[in-house]
Design a protein around this nucleic acid. Structure first.
Lengths: 189, 189
DNA sequence: CCATAACGTGAATGGTGCTTCATGTTGTAT
DNA sequence: ATACAACATGAAGCACCATTCACGTTATGG
């Protein structure tokens, strides 16, 4: 299911280079960077990009999906800590804060966060990782509510709504302030 | 200061057509619509656009500034009602709600709202209108706080922060929910 | 070491978009 | 009514970008 044949050694190396270069370039210049620029940053020719990805859209989607994986890792890590006794609400706010910082430095992940809440016909590569995030965050929300730290009517959709609206283009102090303002409304009274 | 010479009759008519067409096209397709498309919608040739605006950027900026004017009108209207006895907090939330709806249908205004809070070296045409908005909303905030309906540490910058982060791409119900979540955190306890 | 399939290359193609300018048209002052 | 400045036109110039493909290169199994 994963691969009919293993990639040739140089092909694998180039694929990795392309992914990191694409990630860097998209992070720095947004998803509108040219394929030529990504190729140059990766040290390969344009044609090579098309040997690994059918078109630009798929390349960008792959980069976004990869960023998404680390987000899912973070969420699952939070849930793990919570199970071991860490306060659920603290894990939730910590997660939010980190996501905000990540997104602030990375427009590709911003697109990903947006896709999570809005574009429910996402790229196939995104489906699996979306359920991972959903599971982890859903667990955290339920625990925080059970512990009386989060208002009872708060839902997973609300969290996605927050993720999709976080002010990524603002300076760090403004971002922190934003989170603080929202949190006072979310705490159970 | 305003105009060295009055525009010729047909020139004024075309300028108006261009502005409305540009507004419509940008609203519908975003700021990346082609000049050709705007020209076609206005019923003029591309060259005419360049008779009225030095380049595309200036045309878009003019459209944004125009949208901004109606936003300023709304804010001042709110302040006027407040002075006549309407509760300041209600005016404030009403304003927010309307801005959210407007932005949801109009990416150009979204860009404007973003510019207000972030890009402080904005287009010259924006300077005057920015102070209008600042005056009106600042007054509303102070009144709402004096009336004990708004937490005392809320600032104008906080309001801009909210404006810049409102989830314009979300469906109406989600937008309302977002505002409700935020407001419970803003009300004075 | 060879044969060959996998891989990499980068100039060429076709498309789109912004901007300009030489030419034609029209409002308006006299 | 006339003349002229103001205005409108839209094809052409120029730059950029995604994608393709015919050909050269290289890893790898035998």
């Amino acid at each position: 299911m994963t691969s009919p044949r293993p990639l040739r050694a140089d092909a694998a190396r180039n694929r990795a280079r392309i992914m990191t270069a694409a990630h860097e370039q998209i992070t720095e210049h947004g998803p509108e960077v040219s394929m030529e620029q990504i190729a140059a940053a990766a040290g390969v020719a344009v044609g090579t990009l098309y040997k690994h990805f059918p078109n630009k859209n798929d390349l960008v989607a792959s980069v976004v999906a990869a960023s998404f994986e680390t987000l899912a890792d973070d969420a699952e890590e939070c849930l793990r800590r919570e199970v071991q006794g860490s306060p659920a609400m603290a894990e939730l706010t910590g997660f939010l804060s980190r996501v905000m910082d990540t997104v602030a430095r990375n427009r590709a992940v911003k697109a990903a966060a947006y896709a999570l809440s809005a574009d429910h016909t996402t790229h196939p590569a995104m489906q699996a990782v979306e359920t991972r995030v959903t599971q982890a965050l859903g667990g955290l929300i339920r625990s925080a509510q059970a512990q009386g730290a989060l208002r009872a009517d708060f839902t997973l959709d609300d969290l996605y709504l927050m993720l999709s609206s976080l002010p990524a283009d603002q300076p760090p102090t403004a971002r922190t302030r934003w989170l603080a303002l929202l949190l006072t409304g979310l705490t159970a009274r």
